[in-house]
Amino acid sequence: MTTTSTFKSEADRPLARRPWLSRWSDPDDTTLAVILLAPAAILLSVMIVYPVSRLIYTSFLDLSLTSGLPARFAGLANFRQMPDDPVFWQATWNTVLITLITVPGSLVVGFALALLANLPFQMKWPVRLSLLIPWALPLSFAGLIFGWFFHSEYGVVNDVLNRIGLPSVIWFNSPRLAFAAICLAIIWKASSFMAMIILAGLQTIPRSLYEAADVDGAGRVRRFFEITLPLLKPTIVVALIFRTITALQTFDIPYMMTGGGPGTETATLAMYIHQNTVSFLDLGYGSALAVVMFGLSMLVTALYLRMIRGSGAAS
C-alpha cells in the first residue's frame, strides 16, 4: 500500500466498503496514479509495444503472401538472407551516407537560418513564416518538386545552366549526381526544422550575457563560440537526435525523385522495406529488414544519449 496517504487512517476508510462512486471521485494515491497513467500506458502498448513486438515476431516467420502458403516459423532465415542480398547492402550504405551528409548539412544551414531569423527584424512574422514553409510542406511534395527541378528536359536547374552558357546535365542518369540532388532536397527540407529548434534555443539565452561580454570587449566571433554555442549544445543534441532518426528513415524524397534509380543506385533501406512488403508481399523478409533499421535507430539514439550524459548537459 501507499505510504504517503497518511492524512487519513486506513482503518477509518476500509477500501472494500467504500461506495464505488467515491473511489472514483476521491481516489487514494495509488488508484489516482493508475488512472492517470493508464491512458498513456494503453496508448503506448497499442501504438508502440504491440506493433514492434509483432514486427519482431514476423521477422522470424517465412511469410510471403505470394507463396499461397501459411506462415511458418523460420528462425533466423530472413536475417541470414541479408548478407547475400546486394540491394540490401546498397540500400543500407545509401541510408548511412544520406545520414552522414544531410545531418551535418542541415545543421549548418539550419544554424545559419536560425541566426538570421534571430536578428532584430522589424517584422518578425514574414521571416518566421518563410522559415516554416519548407518544414510544413509534405515530404512527398518536396520530392516531387525537386524531381521536376532536376528533370533533364523540363527542369529549372538545367534551364539556369543553359542560360549561363553551360550544357544540360542528365542528373538522374548518374548515380552520383542523382544522389547529390537527393541530398540537396533533403537538406533544404530538413534545415527549416533544425532552424526552428535552434531559434527556440537561441531565444532562451539571456541578453545580459552578451551585454556582459560586450563590456569585457569580446568580439562577435568570440561571443558566438563562448556563449551561443555552449549554451545551445543541449538544444543542438536534441535536434540532431530527431534529424538523425528521420534521416535513417529517409523514404519520401528519393522515392518521389528517382524511385531509387538509376537501377537501384539511390534506393534507401526504408524504400527497400517498402518494396519487399508492399510490392513483393514478402512480409517476413520486409519485417526482418525493418528490425535491422529499428536496431540502427536505437543504436544511434543510444550514442547521442550517452553523449549528452557524458557532457552533463542533460537536465
Binding site: 505470394t66 542518369n173 548518374s174 537501377g263 537501384t264 543506385e265 513483393f280 508481399l281
Partner: peptide, 23 residues
C-alpha cells in the same frame, strides 16, 4: 509466376541502370 513483382523489379531496374549508363 506468383513472384512476378520481383522478376519485374529485377528486369526494369537493370534496364534503367544500363540506359542511364550506370551499368
Amino acid at each position: 509466376t506468383p513472384r512476378y513483382n520481383e522478376v519485374s523489379e529485377v528486369i526494369r531496374t537493370t534496364v534503367n541502370a544500363v540506359l542511364a549508363g550506370a551499368t
